[in-house]
Design a protein around this nucleic acid. Structure first.
Lengths: 192, 192
DNA sequence: GTTCATCTAGTCAAATTTGAATAGATAGGT
DNA sequence: ACCTATCTATTCAAATTTGACTAGATGAAC
């Protein structure tokens, strides 16, 4: 659920103001048949909950619905922005690839150094997991699934992949790739 | 949901006859803090549904509850065995690691050649996915998440890992590792 | 100028999952 | 004998997700 929340808050934030269908469109256009599958129902449910919790509020963008039935547009409250950052940080800490992917999708909305330190801290428990998995005993003819060499081997491999993907991402960030929220220079310095 | 169903049917089948708590115990003991997280509620719900659908039926193992409140024990019906095989085949075809892992956990309950051919067919769409992901355009400063090099790269890497894990598993199977249901020779031939 | 296909926008019931609570039984200490 | 900690086994309400459905608007074809 926190994935849906993160995605909904993030898309609204990117657009400033938008409605349920707009969120759905963005999300479905973003997913290249991978990393998400958010059904309309989940989005509208998330919107209701987020509104009830004061994370978002109805708003009016200039453009009135040109097509189709009427819509409700939303924007984030201050509380919603805080919640978004919290969820984003958690996603970047997650061992689950879907979560991590959602985190990466929005990572530029946190300061570069902040993202770097989250990812670096993430490596510690991740490496511990790998080390732990490697201590698990296996049997050539496993008496139960937890001792199956293929199963255990697959998870070790998966975790190692997550580690290497994280390392690679860190390198890009250290190398200065991408533009983070703290690096926006809109080409002209401040107005006097 | 079909993961829970598969796990529940599979555990009952391994034990012959067992009850909800028994399933829970097996599952929690098998998960080495990885590949599953099945809450009691889901198990009992799955049991009810499976019984309503005629996949399992109440049964009586010899050993009456020694401890705690009374329990309901179940065994698979013929229909349940068929359903188990279907779910197992689907799990082995799945691109989702959790599903695949559940499939591997029980794979010895299908004939070796059958598993081999499922896994080999699996490689085709998997490779297509990788190829497709590689055609996706990316931008150094992505205008939207679907064009983020890190995101796209991470999914390519993940899919490639799934491919290589599948290949490795196939090698083991071709090499004759593990004992499959069609290879059980209980050390003594048939009774005359 | 009306029908049809399609895009837009959202609703709803049913299925499923979660997390916490309930409650029986026994074993061990005092 | 009684208390209580712990293991056994299940139940339940609430949260969440799914999938299918409803329904407004437009434009293009006829």
């Amino acid at each position: 659920m926190s994935t849906v929340r993160l995605l909904v808050l993030g898309t609204i934030l990117r657009r400033g103001v938008t409605h349920g269908y707009g969120v759905h469109q963005d999300l479905t256009s973003w997913r290249a048949d991978t990393w998400t599958s958010v059904k309309p129902g989940s989005i509208y449910h998330a919107l209701e909950k987020l509104e009830a919790q004061g994370m978002i509020m109805p708003a009016d963008s200039g453009n009135p619905a040109k097509l189709g039935p009427s819509r409700t547009e939303y924007m984030l409250t201050e509380q919603g922005k805080t919640e978004f950052q919290t969820l984003l940080e958690n996603a970047l800490k997650s061992n689950d690839l879907q979560q991590l992917a959602a985190g990466i999708a929005f990572m530029e909305m946190l300061p570069r150094q902040h993202v770097i330190s989250i990812l670096e801290e993430r490596l510690i428990p991740l490496n511990q997991s790998v080390a732990f998995l490697k201590t698990l005993p296996t049997e050539p003819i496993p008496s139960d699934p937890s001792k199956h060499p293929e199963l255990v081997g697959m998870w070790i491999g998966y975790m190692e992949y997550v580690v290497s993907a994280t390392r690679k991402l860190l390198q890009s960030l250290h190398a200065g790739k991408y533009k983070f929220i703290d690096e926006i220079t809109d080409g002209g310095g401040e107005p006097s």
